[in-house]
């Protein structure tokens, strides 16, 4: 067995040499059968078929073309993704999404909130002025412009009222001018407007009070509405407040009301 293994091993080594284009090392080989087989292996190596060069070139060209097409397809696919980001439609969608996101964040921050609650309702239907003048301004109160001299803030104590509840309206005027203001005929006129018809259902008459305000100083007024219209009839539904322009030394200070204060009165339940 070992002798046979040795024989095959010598034969295989020489066969590898023959196929590599080298000469077999048969100097020490005495096995005639093996030598004859190695000679035949040389012959077999010589008559191996070669390839048609035309077929070889044609096949290579075809394969490289397929490779090129495949790579182009891969590049185009990735360019498509890159190109998508440049499409106007994609940019428009992305811009809309960003705007919605920003507006949502601002809305949640409460920038547009204009009607926080106000305390202390009064019992008289006429406006009363309280000189709760504060020398310092509250940092949480938003003041809207009254011309270029004043700022105002108006609010109701609630957003929703039951039938018969008193609606308390609080108005704060603030001197935003660089000089002392002597304001007359205060408090100013405020109307309760029907949200659907945009017509006044009730109007608080202007007062005859005079207030002198230093720069940054405020004055507050309270109005109480008993939910009745000009004819004394109880009303319900949605309403908003409208402040009349304020007169100062012959000039009219325009009220800027970006978003009116709204509230709602629920109808009286009848069974």
């Amino acid at each position: 067995m070992n002798k046979h293994n040795k024989t095959e091993e010598i034969f295989s080594e020489n066969l590898d040499r023959i196929l590599a284009g080298e000469e077999a090392k048969t100097g020490t080989v005495s096995d005639v059968d093996m030598l004859s087989a190695l000679d035949f292996a040389v012959k077999m190596a010589d008559i191996q078929p070669a390839i048609s060069t035309q077929f070889q070139r044609r096949l290579k060209a075809g394969l490289l073309k397929k490779l090129e097409d495949r790579e182009i397809a891969a590049v185009e696919k990735n360019r498509w993704w890159a190109g998508l980001f440049q499409q106007p439609a994609f940019k428009a969608v992305a811009a809309v999404f960003l705007v919605i996101l920003v507006v949502s964040l601002i809305w949640r921050a409460g920038v547009f909130d204009l009607s926080p609650g106000v305390p202390q309702p009064t019992t008289t239907p006429l406006p009363t002025a309280t000189e709760a003048a504060t020398t310092t301004t509250t940092t949480t109160t938003t003041y809207y412009a009254v011309g270029s001299l004043l700022g105002y803030n108006v609010r109701t104590d609630k957003a929703f009222y039951q039938a018969g509840e008193k609606v308390v309206i609080s108005l704060t005027l603030k001197n935003t001018a660089n000089n002392v203001l002597k304001m007359e005929k205060l408090p100013p006129i405020i109307s309760v407007m029907n949200a659907e018809t945009h017509k006044p259902v009730y109007t608080f008459s202007g007062g005859k009070e005079t207030h002198t305000l230093a720069f940054g100083e405020t004055v507050q007024f309270a109005y109480t509405w008993d939910q009745t219209d000009f004819n004394g009839r109880a009303v319900s539904g949605g309403y908003y407040l409208e402040l009349e322009d304020i007169e100062y030394q012959g000039q009219t200070l325009k009220i800027q009301q970006p978003q009116p204060v709204r509230f709602e009165i629920k109808p009286e339940t009848t069974y």
Binding site: H4, N5, T7, E8, E9, F11, S12, L15, S36, A41
Partner: peptide, 10 residues
Amino acid sequence: VGVILYRAIR
């Protein structure tokens, strides 16, 4: 493989 090769070539 060596055995088969030797036998087949012969």
